[in-house]
C-alpha cells in the first residue's frame, strides 16, 4: 500500500483533531501574531513591539528568570516523579489510595492551592512551625528575593509531580517482567536494572513527561500571581506573569502579544532540542 494513498485515510483519522486544534489554538495564536506586529495606534506592520520588549530590562529579566526556573524545576520534578512512580509501583495493600492522594493536588483550582501555601509560607505559618520542630530557625520564604522562587518551585511541584508520576507509573507497568528476570539472571543489581532496563524501556513516557513538564513550567502563572505578584524585587516575575501584567494591568496588549510570540518560539526551540535528545534511530 503506497504512502500517498494512506494520506486520505490518515486525514480522515486526523480531521476532527486537526480541525479543533487549528480553529481553537493555531488560528487565535496567528491572530496574536498579527496583533503583535501592530504597534499601539499603528495601522501597518512593524517590529516595534518586539524592539520595545527586547529593550525593556523588565522583560529581559523575566526571560532570564523563566529560563533559570526551567533549568532547576524540570529535572527536579522529573526526578521526583520518577522516584515516586518507582516507590508507588507495587501491589501492596492501599497503594491505589496513596497514589490518589499524591495526584490530588492537581485537581484543585490553582487559586485555592495558592491560598493554602500562602498561609503555610507565612513567616508565622505552618512551614516555619514545622522547621521549628527540627530545630531550624524561621525562614523568610516568600518575602525574600533569594527564597521566593524556591517557594514557587515547591508549590508547582506539589501540584504537578503526582500528575507526571501517574504517567510514568503507566509506563513502568508496561515494562515486561521478563526483562527484569533476565537482568537478574545476568547478575545485575537494582541500580544496574534501573539503568539498563527501566530507563531505556521508559524512553517514550519519559520523552512525553519531559516535554509536557517543560511546557507546563514555562506556563506557570496562578501561583506567581497569587503568592508573589512577581516579587519580591521581580525575583519571581516569570514570563507568563509578565505577559498577563502587560495585557491586563498595563493595558498594553500589543507588547503582551509580542511577548507571547517570543515565549512560544522559545518553547519550540527547547522542545525541538528535547526531541532530538530523546529520539533514537528507530523513530522518525
Amino acid at each position: 500500500m503506497s504512502k500517498t494513498k494512506n494520506i486520505y485515510v490518515a486525514l480522515a483519522f486526523l480531521a476532527p483533531a486537526l480541525l479543533a486544534v487549528v480553529c481553537l489554538r493555531i488560528w487565535p495564536a496567528l491572530l496574536s501574531v498579527h496583533e503583535s506586529l501592530l504597534a499601539p495606534r499603528a495601522t501597518t506592520y512593524s517590529l516595534e513591539n518586539y524592539i520595545y520588549i527586547f529593550g525593556d530590562p523588565i522583560f529581559q529579566s523575566s526571560v532570564w528568570t523563566t529560563l533559570f526556573f526551567s533549568i532547576v524545576v524540570n529535572p527536579l520534578q522529573i526526578a521526583i516523579s520518577l522516584g515516586l512512580a518507582i516507590l508507588l509501583n507495587n501491589k501492596l495493600p492501599g497503594t491505589g489510595f496513596w497514589r490518589t492522594l499524591v495526584l490530588l493536588p492537581v485537581a484543585i483550582p490553582a487559586s485555592v492551592s495558592a491560598v493554602v501555601w500562602a498561609a503555610a509560607l507565612r513567616p508565622d505559618g505552618l512551614m516555619n512551625a514545622l522547621l521549628g520542630l527540627f530545630g531550624l530557625g524561621p525562614q523568610p520564604f516568600l518575602t525574600s528575593p533569594q527564597q521566593a522562587l524556591a517557594c514557587i518551585i515547591l508549590v508547582t511541584s506539589w501540584i504537578g509531580v503526582g500528575y507526571w508520576m501517574t504517567i510514568l507509573l503507566a509506563g513502568l507497568q508496561d515494562i515486561p517482567k521478563s526483562l527484569y528476570e533476565a537482568a537478574r539472571i545476568d547478575g545485575m543489581n537494582r541500580w544496574q536494572q534501573f539503568i539498563n532496563v527501566t530507563l531505556p524501556q521508559l524512553r517514550r513516557p519519559l520523552t512525553f513527561v519531559l516535554v509536557a513538564d517543560t511546557v507546563s513550567n514555562f506556563l506557570v502563572f496562578a501561583p506567581v500571581q497569587i503568592l508573589t505578584r512577581g516579587g519580591p524585587q521581580r525575583s519571581t516575575n516569570l514570563i507568563m506573569h509578565e505577559i498577563y501584567n502587560r495585557a491586563f494591568a498595563a493595558g498594553d496588549k500589543s507588547s503582551a502579544y509580542a511577548a507571547t510570540v517570543v515565549l512560544i518560539l522559545l518553547m519550540l526551540t527547547i522542545v525541538a532540542i528535547q526531541f532530538r535528545m530523546m529520539s533514537d534511530k528507530g523513530e522518525s
Partner: peptide
C-alpha cells in the same frame, strides 16, 4: 506539538 505550546490563557 505547537498547539499545546500555545499558552491558552494568552490567546
Amino acid at each position: 506539538i505547537v498547539s499545546f505550546l500555545i499558552p491558552f490563557d494568552a490567546i
